[in-house]
Simulated scan of single mutants.
Amino acid sequence: MAFYDTASRTAYFIEFGAGRPIVLLHGISNSGRAWGPQIAPLVEAGYRVIVPDHAGHGASGKLTTPIGVAALAGDIEALLAHLDIGPVDLVGLH
């Protein structure tokens, strides 16, 4: 399990493969597990697949205050900085 700290929160992510990075974002009230069926085909296609759990979701830390979309976007920016990754392909569910 991999964690990173952002804005006084602990967030979880997992990654698979190597190559061009792609970040898979889950919808609200879900977790990165929603992407399970897509991970292996993306790795086989040559992607480095990065799947975070948003704050308060999945294996990420619990929230103590409400959070908005801007903060979630900031968390993803912090994850990319943590991984020292530049441009990525970004895919999301709602």
Rank of each mutant, 00 (worst) to 15 (best):
residue 6 T to G: 03
residue 7 A to M: 03
residue 8 S to D: 15
residue 8 S to T: 08
residue 9 R to G: 00
residue 9 R to A: 12
residue 9 R to P: 00
residue 9 R to I: 04
residue 9 R to W: 02
residue 10 T to H: 13
residue 11 A to Q: 07
residue 12 Y to R: 12
residue 13 F to D: 01
residue 13 F to N: 05
residue 13 F to E: 01
residue 14 I to W: 01
residue 16 F to Y: 15
residue 16 F to C: 01
residue 16 F to R: 13
residue 17 G to P: 06
residue 19 G to H: 05
residue 19 G to N: 11
residue 19 G to L: 07
residue 20 R to H: 12
residue 20 R to N: 08
residue 21 P to R: 06
residue 21 P to D: 06
residue 21 P to N: 08
residue 21 P to S: 10
residue 21 P to Q: 11
residue 22 I to T: 07
residue 25 L to K: 02
residue 25 L to H: 02
residue 26 H to L: 03
residue 27 G to N: 10
residue 27 G to I: 07
residue 27 G to W: 11
residue 28 I to P: 00
residue 28 I to C: 02
residue 28 I to E: 07
residue 29 S to R: 12
residue 29 S to F: 12
residue 30 N to C: 13
residue 31 S to V: 05
residue 31 S to N: 14
residue 31 S to T: 12
residue 31 S to Y: 05
residue 31 S to K: 08
residue 32 G to W: 02
residue 32 G to F: 06
residue 33 R to S: 12
residue 33 R to Y: 10
residue 34 A to S: 14
residue 34 A to N: 07
residue 34 A to E: 12
residue 35 W to E: 04
residue 36 G to R: 14
residue 36 G to V: 04
residue 38 Q to P: 00
residue 38 Q to M: 13
residue 38 Q to A: 15
residue 39 I to C: 04
residue 39 I to E: 06
residue 40 A to T: 11
residue 40 A to H: 08
residue 40 A to G: 12
residue 41 P to Q: 08
residue 43 V to L: 06
residue 43 V to Y: 01
residue 44 E to S: 13
residue 45 A to V: 05
residue 46 G to C: 08
residue 46 G to Q: 09
residue 47 Y to T: 01
residue 47 Y to C: 08
residue 48 R to A: 04
residue 48 R to W: 10
residue 48 R to K: 15
residue 49 V to Q: 07
residue 50 I to K: 05
residue 51 V to E: 07
residue 51 V to I: 09
residue 51 V to R: 04
residue 51 V to P: 03
residue 51 V to Q: 09
residue 52 P to I: 02
residue 53 D to W: 04
residue 54 H to L: 14
residue 54 H to E: 05
residue 54 H to S: 12
residue 54 H to C: 03
residue 55 A to F: 09
residue 56 G to F: 08
residue 56 G to E: 09
residue 56 G to S: 11
residue 56 G to V: 09
residue 58 G to C: 07
residue 58 G to I: 10
residue 59 A to G: 00
residue 59 A to T: 00
residue 59 A to E: 11
residue 59 A to K: 14
residue 59 A to W: 02
residue 61 G to V: 02
residue 62 K to L: 11
residue 62 K to A: 14
residue 62 K to V: 09
residue 64 T to M: 08
residue 66 P to D: 13
residue 68 G to M: 01
residue 68 G to K: 11
residue 68 G to L: 05
residue 69 V to W: 11
residue 70 A to T: 12
residue 71 A to Y: 00
residue 72 L to G: 00
residue 73 A to V: 15
residue 73 A to Y: 03
residue 74 G to Y: 00
residue 75 D to P: 02
residue 76 I to C: 05
residue 76 I to D: 01
residue 76 I to V: 15
residue 78 A to K: 05
residue 78 A to P: 04
residue 79 L to G: 04
residue 79 L to Q: 09
residue 81 A to E: 15
residue 81 A to P: 01
residue 81 A to N: 14
residue 81 A to L: 12
residue 82 H to F: 14
